[in-house]
Amino acid sequence: MTARIDACFAKARAENRPVLVTYTMAGDPDAETSLAILKNVAASGADIVEFGLPFTDPVADGPAIQASGLRALDAGQTTVKTLDLVREFRKDFPDTPVILMGYYNPIYSYGPEKFVLDAKYAGVDGMIVVDVPAEEDDELCIPAMKQGLAFIRLVPPTADDKRLPVILKNSSGFVYHVSINGITGAATPDYSVVSTALERIRKYTDLPIVVGFGVKTGEHAAALGEHADGVVVGTALVNQIASTFGAGDTATAATATAVNDMVADLAAGVRRAKSN
């Protein structure tokens, strides 16, 4: 629910720091391990966790997240199973906001209205659905907001002053500024450009703005976090997790805790951000 997201940002603001948002894929390399990873990520310092809904054709994602999604699908991950994992996560982490991130077709296939309800009852707080722009708000955004779920927008550099009000009209929770045009896992952005972009976006919204794309280390997080209300890291985690796999892309003893140190480093990074 947006209440949990609002509380999370309020707490970070009180601590004078940006939030750390992580992305990992549901079901990669298998459902159970991906749940263990999600819990470890939250315990290691992530403020908000994004959980990827795997899709066969993730057109906005780079090779790392494409491969992650396909591994999850090969291991039998489904939308129903992903909601089950969120339900399990929620038992141990009552306060950490959970955002589902993915593409529209699996949700459309599930039934948008039913999905929104089931997600809400599983403990989901919001969603980012890459291929449903403002022009298609009636499809999913309006039903989600009716149920109190946040519908989080990706705001890319192509969004100009004409476009921003359109994108932000029906957004809630927070705004996700994609700092470079392109797919996930691409280059690290120029921080001064990001700072200018954030100033522009702030003219059109009071929502917190998190920044993603290209964040790999605590240092990046500290630098980006100086300007933003939050920092998102995804591809670096997904790659680190995949580096622990055994033969046939299966989990090893190291997989569940693979990103604990990385998340701790990033969490320390966001805590340095505003004091830089």
């Binding site: 722009p133 990706l154 192509t158 994609v178």
Partner: peptide
């Protein structure tokens, strides 16, 4: 039909 694309592509 419709326009189900990432926001980056909408202005285009």
């Amino acid at each position: 039909g419709g326009r189900f694309v990432a926001e980056t592509l909408m202005p285009l």
